[in-house]
Simulated scan of single mutants.
Amino acid sequence: MSVNLIFKIAAVGILVTVLSQVLKHSGRDEHAFLTSLAGLIIVLFWIVPYIYDLFETMQKLFAL
């Protein structure tokens, strides 16, 4: 895992937090929720390959 990925996740977190707060204060709670959900999905798409590699490595390590 590279440091670049951590910075991208942090940037998405900051951006989603700011957008969510702006939308909540303007009375658009549904849009704020969808923005948070979209940020979560983006980060999960970035993380899933690393989790898959982790499970493959564990499977090879224990020879299951």
Rank of each mutant, 00 (worst) to 15 (best):
Lys8Phe: 11
Lys8Cys: 10
Ala32Lys: 07
Leu34Ile: 11
Leu61Cys: 03
Ala11His: 09
Val43Ser: 00
Glu56Phe: 08
Glu30Gln: 15
Val16Cys: 10
Pro49Tyr: 02
Leu40Trp: 14
Ile14Ala: 15
Leu40Arg: 14
Phe62Leu: 02
Val12Tyr: 08
Phe62Asn: 01
Leu5Pro: 11
Val43Lys: 00
Ile14His: 09
Asn4Asp: 12
Val48Tyr: 04
Lys60Asp: 02
Gly27Ser: 05
Leu34Glu: 10
Lys60Asn: 07
His31Gln: 13
Ile51Trp: 02
Phe45Ser: 10
Thr17Met: 08
Gly27Arg: 01
Glu30Cys: 03
Val16Asn: 05
Pro49Met: 05
Gly27Cys: 02
Gly27Ala: 03
His25Leu: 08
Phe7Val: 14
Val22Ala: 13
Ala63Ser: 06
Leu54Cys: 11
Lys24Cys: 09
Ile9His: 10
Phe33Glu: 15
Val16Pro: 07
Val18Thr: 11
Ala10Tyr: 06
Thr35Ala: 15
Asn4Pro: 00
Leu34Phe: 08
His25Asn: 13
Ile41Asp: 05
Thr17Tyr: 01
His25Ser: 13
Val43His: 03
Tyr52Lys: 07
Ser20Leu: 00
Ile47Met: 06
Phe55Leu: 13
Ala38Trp: 07
Leu23Pro: 10
Ile41His: 03
Phe62Asp: 02
Ile6Trp: 04
Ile41Arg: 04
Thr35Leu: 14
Leu54Gln: 12
Ile47Leu: 15
Pro49Leu: 01
Ile14Pro: 04
Ile51Gly: 01
Asp29Arg: 09
Val43Thr: 14
Val43Asn: 06
Leu23Arg: 01
Ala32Asn: 03
Lys24Ser: 10
Phe55Gln: 02
His25Lys: 14
Ala10Pro: 04
Leu23Cys: 08
Ile41Leu: 13
Ala10Arg: 15
Lys24Val: 07
Ala38Glu: 05
Gln21Arg: 05
Ser36Arg: 12
Phe33Ser: 15
Phe62His: 00
Ala63Gln: 07
Leu61Ala: 11
Gly13Gln: 08
Val48Phe: 02
Leu44Met: 05
Glu56Trp: 03
Leu23Tyr: 03
Ser2Phe: 10
Glu30Ser: 15
Thr17His: 06
Ala63Lys: 10
Val18Gln: 05
Thr35Trp: 11
Ile51Ala: 02
Ile42Arg: 05
Ile41Tyr: 07
Val12Met: 07
Ile9Val: 13
Lys60His: 12
Leu61Lys: 12
Leu15Glu: 00
Leu61Thr: 13
Ile47Cys: 11
Ser36Glu: 14
Leu54Glu: 05
Met58Pro: 02
Ile14Gly: 12
Met1Pro: 10
Glu56Gln: 03
